[in-house]
């Protein structure tokens, strides 16, 4: 019986310390990144994983109990709600950003196609012509071969 208790303690302690290490990484990330959305990403990842590891460790230490079930409900609730929170914060940041041209690059599809056409116009045309010619030659050969066969 003693061995099981010690094993429970060691496994739970390991997961708990892993969780606090993840929290430390999260804090380092939140202080070192240079842009808001990067910091929010570090916070969201660290929160979700850190809380999962910590509370799993506590559940293992406690055994199968009603209290463990309630702590598991905490994990499930947080894993549902934390991504939604970060989505809303990212949305807030994107709408209220004053220096948008400095931070993001906006790609609109029609403009991309136009610029592509302008840049690669000559090459594309040449390639297309050569492809068409080669296709045409093949078709002509095939047709000639068929005509010969028919004849």
């Amino acid at each position: 019986m003693e061995a099981i208790e010690w094993i429970k303690f060691l496994a739970g302690a390991l997961l708990l310390l892993l969780g606090t290490t993840i929290f430390i990484f999260e804090m380092i990330g939140v202080f070192r990144f240079k842009y808001v959305l990067n910091r929010m990403h570090a916070a969201a990842m660290g929160d979700t994983l850190g809380i999962g590891a910590c509370i799993l460790g506590l559940i293992i230490m406690n055994g199968m109990n009603l209290t463990s079930l309630k702590l598991f409900v905490v994990i499930i609730f947080l894993w549902f709600s934390s991504p939604v929170s970060s989505h809303l914060i990212a949305r807030l940041e994107v709408t209220t950003d004053e220096e948008q041209d400095k931070h993001y690059r906006r790609l609109i599809l029609s403009q991309v196609e136009e610029s592509c056409e302008r840049n690669n116009c000559e090459e594309k045309n040449r390639k297309q012509e050569s492809r068409e010619q080669s296709n045409c030659e093949e078709k002509c050969r095939v047709q000639a071969a068929e005509k010969e066969e028919v004849k």
């Binding site: 609730f77 549902f80 709600s81 991504p83 939604v84 989505h87 809303l88 949305r91 709408t95």
Partner: peptide, 17 residues
Amino acid sequence: PKNDVILQTAARILVPP
């Protein structure tokens, strides 16, 4: 902002509990 699809899906699952 109104009718955020992500928030609506999450609320549909979370409000009954």
